[in-house]
Nucleic acid binder design. Structure first.
Length: 422
RNA sequence: GGAUGGGUGGCCGAGCGGUCGAAGGCAGCGGUCUUGAAAACCGCCAGGGCGCAAGCCCUCGUGGGUUCGAAUCCCACCCCAUCCGCCA
């Protein structure tokens, strides 16, 4: 959500920011409602002031036994006038909020220009694509050949875009999640959390999925939402709170299933388990003072990169361009992993600094150490990393000529003695 | 699902329909005192909107209603606690 005062102060800058995302100007429409709201509100407040004065006078007059009929008559008239003004102010406010809540965050000035992923900028690459002495297979070929990855059964149980893992592959998925959690809690200072996977309207609105992206989500019959990422519950820990600055930064991590409807992605990545309705992910969330979010963003991204490096994967950091940066983010780094079987770089993590955009939506503030007044917090989220896609990357990277898969060293303590699958 | 009791400022906790945005306490901030700290004492201390300012307005879970006037009365809903039922 945007600060209406910022729009008021510099409408042209606001529209220019929207233009970077390829969006039409909106400041004029927003300000039209803002002005209508303020006009109605000012008029309303004058009536309210008069109403309060009359009520006070009546109170005094009654105590003295004086006649109050004239005052009461004026108050009744006022009440009718106020009702109309109140309705006008409320309507203007609703319309302004409706416009504002579907506008994305203002981008960091450093975000590269561009309308789609072709304009993203590779900042750093770790390792080179592996050269295989054989033709590397894709993950689903490996998994199905091992008899440990079963799309047929998953389709029977639930439909397309689900996967059944068995035996050592199920264990490998679990090991990946466990190991990542251990790394972030023990080496990176994050606090592990176990959170609701079903959340209410306010919570999912707070992080920005509602109202604009409802079609990407699953909704329960009692009106709750399945989380598309643990970012939603974790970030909302701060919702409605006024945190002392001394409590910051708050660093939270959770391993959860994520549920996405994948509406609009029909036909994309239909083979294998790259794009699923349900997948496991270790999420990182940081809640910081405004002046520290930029450095926290770099730190968080390094925490995610550490996962890929320690797994021995080939990866690169990509600075998302204006058109590819998500709704709530001011600045996003994607981590892409090299998939030898597919012969492509694929997103495995996305680390975003949302600044105060989500905090405004969820009214999350902090009380500064020194100064007066409360300020909105900054929120950041990043995958640390997507477990399902990490599994894919491990399978394709560690596959052997005989169809077996070696287990990365860091996972050995979590694999119950299994060092080779197949 | 049924029954009961509750939702008031950062926290705890008062609040006969009218000078209540709200007593008191705790925490916090500033000061006096002290070599320093503690204690004691004094003062300040909710959030938001409009305004250059003075100031005005809104907010006592949310939304309606009654009233000249609602934290206080009525209705609905939400949430929390406890007990019962059911259940992993």
């Amino acid at each position: 959500m945007h600060d209406i005062r910022a729009v008021r102060a510099d409408p042209a800058a606001f529209d220019a920011a929207l233009a970077r995302r390829g969006l039409a100007p909106a400041a004029a429409a927003v300000l039209r409602h803002d002005e209508a709201r303020r006009a109605a509100q000012t008029a309303l407040q004058e009536k309210q002031a008069r109403r309060n004065a009359i009520a006070k006078e009546i109170g005094i007059a009654k105590r003295q036994g004086a006649d109050t009929a004239a005052l009461e008559a004026e108050a009744v008239t006022l009440r009718e006038e106020m009702a109309a003004l109140d309705a006008a102010a409320a309507a203007a406010e609703r319309e302004q909020a409706a416009l504002l809540e579907v506008l994305p965050n203002i981008l960091d000035p450093e975000v590269p220009e561009g309308s789609d992923e072709t304009a993203n900028v590779v900042l750093h690459q770790s390792g080179e694509p592996l050269v295989f002495p054989f033709t590397p297979k894709q993950h689903f070929e490996i998994g199905e050949a091992l008899g440990l990855m079963d799309f047929g059964t998953a389709a029977k149980l639930a439909g397309a875009r689900f996967t059944v893992l068995k035996g050592a592959l199920a264990r490998l998925e679990r090991a990946l999640g466990q190991w990542m959690l251990a790394l972030h809690t023990e080496a990176h200072g994050y606090t592990e959390a176990s959170v609701p996977l079903l959340v209410n309207d306010a919570t999912i609105h707070g992080t920005g999925q509602l109202p604009k992206f409802a079609e990407d989500l699953f909704r329960t019959t009692d009106g709750r939402w399945l989380i598309p990422t643990a970012e939603v519950p974790l970030t909302n820990f701060a919702a409605g709170e006024i945190l002392p600055e001394s409590a910051l930064p708050i660093r939270l991590t959770a391993l959860t299933p994520c549920f996405r409807s994948e509406a609009g992605s029909a036909g994309r990545d239909t083979r294998g388990m790259l794009r699923q309705h349900q997948f496991a992910k270790v999420e990182l969330v940081s809640i910081t003072a405004p002046e520290h979010s930029a450095e926290e963003h770099e730190r968080m991204t390094r925490c995610a990169e550490r996962v890929l490096t320690d797994l021995g994967l080939t990866w690169r950091r990509v600075f998302l361009c204006a058109g590819d940066t998500g709704f709530s983010a001011a600045r996003t780094y994607d981590l892409e992993v090299w998939l030898p079987g597919q012969g492509a770089w694929r997103e495995i993590s996305s680390c975003s600094n949302c600044r105060d955009f989500q905090a405004r939506r969820m009214n999350a503030r902090m009380k500064p150490k020194d100064g007066k007044g409360n300020v909105f917090l900054h929120t950041l989220n990043g995958s640390g990393v997507a477990v399902g896609r990490a599994l894919i990357a491990v399978l394709e990277t560690y596959q052997q000529a005989d169809g077996s898969v070696r287990v990365p060293d860091v996972l050995l303590p979590f694999m119950g003695g299994v060092s080779r699958i197949g």
